[in-house]
Amino acid sequence: MPDEVLDCRGQRCPLPVIAAARRMPQVPVGTVVRVLADDPAAAVDIPAWCRMRGQEFLGAVTGPDGPAYDIRRTH
């Protein structure tokens, strides 16, 4: 389960990626943040951001709140 949820529903890319990029440095290393994002580009861009920034992309999940993406802060 994620430690916290970042609700970016209704935001168009790159806004969900920007929101994740702002939040991740503020949480302790090891924290899992779930980004809720219904823009289809988030499915591509959140994993790509994790790769570019060396953060861990745990995967995409689709639950009652729609598509979500889990990121673990690794450094």
């Binding site: 168009r12 790159p14 580009a41 591509v44 861009d45 570019m52």
Partner: peptide
Amino acid sequence: LRPSHVLEAMGVLSHG
């Protein structure tokens, strides 16, 4: 309003 299917298939950044 969908990202390029090519960029998506490659798994590379699609915005900007």
